[in-house]
């Protein structure tokens, strides 16, 4: 079962940048676009596992720092000629506060 869990505030993330969140399901990368939209995806490039959170953010996508795959935040899919996808994590915002839809069982285990 999933639940909305607060993971931080908008200003914790630089515009066109990312921060990581450690979760029981692994590391997720939370991105903030130029227009202050927030997205979260697995921090793990479908190509060779590069840390997407370390890439350059442009539009609603990120370029992986290892081999320049471009991953869309909205779909988690690789753009252009490359094929592959990562898991996207739903995000909602309440003003400055950011919530991610994460598995409740993990939280309950605390």
């Amino acid at each position: 079962m999933n639940d909305w869990i607060e993971i931080g505030a908008l200003n914790d993330i630089p515009r066109r940048g990312a921060r990581c969140v450690m979760t029981p399901q692994g590391k997720i990368a939370v991105f903030r676009t130029m227009e202050d939209q927030v997205f979260a995806i697995d921090d793990h490039c479908p190509h060779k596992g590069g840390p997407l959170s370390q890439g350059i953010v442009h539009g609603a996508s990120v370029t992986c720092p290892l081999h320049n795959w471009v991953i869309s935040f909205e779909t988690g899919k690789a753009l252009g000629a490359d094929e592959g996808s990562v898991k996207t994590i739903a995000i909602k915002r309440d003003g400055e506060r950011i919530f991610a839809l994460l598995e409740r069982t993990a939280v309950a285990a605390e």
Partner: peptide, 10 residues
């Protein structure tokens, strides 16, 4: 990391 969802295995 911005947050660590506290949970032992994590």
């Amino acid at each position: 990391p911005m947050a660590t969802i506290a949970y032992q295995q994590a």
